[in-house]
């Protein structure tokens, strides 16, 4: 494979990963908020969320492998694993490594959700709100395509849709219909001093 082709693949797979990951985040939020219409059942949201997440990993693998084996950058495999170990664009590549590892933790815990239990799984899943912005900053900071129009449009679209979904979630509050009644009841029976 020629160096140029590798380089284009790295950038292309990176851009696709950004789009997919943003889609995964948006779908995750829609699923937590129980968004549903007659033609769009809830299992479609969660199923798509899951499958797009797995697909994101495939494109990220492509993105990382092509970047590492590209002889021009001499990144080495360590860069893919240890954050900030690259001499080349140290900060920005380091962020990419962190975002990838967070995502890996999220996917792996999801695959073994039945074993680790719902509470632990959910705690790890909140890391999505760290992984996604770090990935976006990595993309912007690394900067090969930052100036090009297609990249700007894509990034704005991704950031915009995730921001809208997050904003919607914050405004809606908990989607568990029992949440407020439950905490009210618990507050009413708060522990009294024992004698």
């Amino acid at each position: 494979m020629s160096t140029t082709l590798l380089w284009y693949t790295t950038r292309g797979a990176g851009a696709v990963s950004m789009v997919l990951l943003s889609g995964v985040v948006v779908l995750g939020i829609l699923s937590a908020l129980r968004v549903q219409t007659a033609g769009w059942p809830r299992f479609l949201t969660t199923g798509l969320h899951r499958n797009l997440a797995l697909m994101t990993l495939v494109f990220l693998a492509l993105h990382i492998v092509t970047a590492v084996i590209d002889p021009f950058t001499h990144l080495g495999w360590l860069t893919a694993v240890v954050p900030f170990s690259s001499y080349y664009r140290t900060i920005w590549l380091g962020l990419g490594t962190i975002a990838f590892e967070l995502l890996l933790a999220i996917v792996v815990t999801s695959l073994i959700r039945g074993f680790i239990g719902h509470v632990a799984w959910r705690l790890v899943h909140w890391l999505a709100y760290a992984s996604w912005p770090i990935a976006i900053i990595h993309g912007i900071g690394t900067g090969t395509d930052t100036q090009s129009a297609w990249s700007i449009v894509l990034t704005i679209a991704c950031v915009g849709s995730v921001a809208a979904a997050v904003g919607y979630r914050v405004l809606r509050g908990s989607s568990d219909p029992l949440a407020s009644a439950r905490s009210e009841f618990r507050a009413g029976i708060a522990r009294r001093p024992e004698q």
């Binding site: 009841f185 009413g188 029976i189 009294r192 024992e194 004698q195």
Partner: peptide
Amino acid sequence: RMAAAPHR
């Protein structure tokens, strides 16, 4: 030891 059951 004693423990208080809330009035519920």
